[in-house]
Simulated scan of single mutants.
Amino acid sequence: MNRPNICITIQDIQRFIGILLFTGYHSLPQERMYWSNDSDISIPIIWDTMTQLQFRNLKYNIHLADNTKIDIHDRFYKVRPYINILNNKFQQFGIFKHHLSIDEQMIPYRGRHSCKMFINRKPIRFGYKSWIFASSDGYVFSFDIYQGKSENKYELDGNVIIKLLKALQKPNYHKIYFDNFFSSFKLLSYLKQMGYFATGTVKDNRIEHCPVESIKVVAKKERGYYDYRFEKLCEIFVVRWNDNLVVTVA
């Protein structure tokens, strides 16, 4: 705590986190409204749990990391312990689903931070971009927050996949799915070598000279037309077909 004269108990911390979770799905325009006595927005469960002053003091002073042990390479070092705790909890019973997906998700945020992003034409345009590793029914096993581009032979997007898949104990027990933001021929080759089964849509410039018919040619064909190739060395199957748009999957 920043102020040693504030008396806080473990129960206060638990109540504070509970209110944060509650306000995550019961949204009001302003924080102070959660303690309002107005009949149309009154929430007794909040003001019976903690006063507004107690909540603000906790919010202002609470820290999740030791500032004397700063990791200058991690822009989220102040919340990293909490992220690690959550990921450990998500995986406490193991990763028990066969079909898994990796995708990006926006966490809404309009404050100031070097990692805050603006992505046009998205439902949530301002916030943090996060990587989500989840089951086919939506259960999240792991997540991380995007901090900026990093150098890697599989590029940033492939590096995300490789990092998240480290949590798997038995690669050949699972099937991984992702979209064309992540996938490439190099990444699929690497995952094959590591024993993973993977499927993803692929951008045209990432199929490494695969001789399927070009997008321009396929787009002129009738809907449902397709062309495919099979790479025997890495056992990668590439198919391109004409739908509303031309789609390539590997």
Rank of each mutant, 00 (worst) to 15 (best):
S214C: 06
E208N: 09
N152P: 07
P171T: 10
R223V: 12
K186Y: 06
Y225P: 04
V212G: 05
A219V: 00
G148S: 03
S214D: 11
D227C: 14
V140F: 03
R112F: 10
I145S: 02
H209S: 06
Q147D: 06
T201A: 07
V160Q: 01
I145P: 01
F143L: 00
Y177P: 05
I215Q: 12
K97A: 13
K166W: 06
Y226T: 10
V160K: 01
S135G: 14
K153Y: 13
Y109R: 01
N120Y: 00
I215S: 14
T199N: 11
R125C: 15
I215C: 11
C115H: 02
Y146L: 06
E208R: 02
K129G: 04
R125L: 08
F197M: 08
R112Q: 14
V160H: 01
V212I: 15
K175Q: 12
F118N: 06
G111H: 05
H209K: 09
R206D: 04
R121W: 00
G224Q: 11
I162T: 05
Q193P: 09
Y154Q: 08
K166N: 15
K232T: 12
G94M: 11
Y173F: 13
H113I: 05
P108K: 11
S183V: 08
E155N: 10
G195P: 10
I132Y: 01
K170P: 00
S189Q: 14
G224S: 11
Y154R: 05
M194I: 08
T201K: 05
R223Q: 13
K163Q: 11
Y177H: 13
K186H: 09
E231S: 01
A167D: 11
I119D: 00
M106D: 07
R206M: 08
K203G: 13
R223W: 08
N159R: 05
A134R: 04
M194K: 15
S142H: 12
P108G: 09
I215G: 06
L187D: 02
K220P: 02
D103Q: 08
R229S: 03
V218L: 14
F197K: 07
Y177W: 07
A167C: 12
G148M: 02
R229D: 03
G138R: 07
F141V: 05
G224L: 11
M106F: 06
L165Q: 02
D179M: 03
K186G: 06
C234I: 00
N205L: 01
V217I: 15
C210I: 14
V160F: 02
G138N: 09
S114Q: 12
Y128G: 04
H174K: 10
I124E: 12
Q147Y: 02
N120P: 14
P171G: 09
G127A: 01
L100H: 02
P211R: 07
F230A: 03
L164V: 04
G111K: 06
K203F: 00
K129T: 11
R121G: 10
I176K: 01
D179V: 07
F133T: 02
L165I: 09
V218I: 15
S101G: 13
I176T: 00
P108F: 07
I176W: 00
E104W: 01
T199C: 15
K149L: 08
E208G: 00
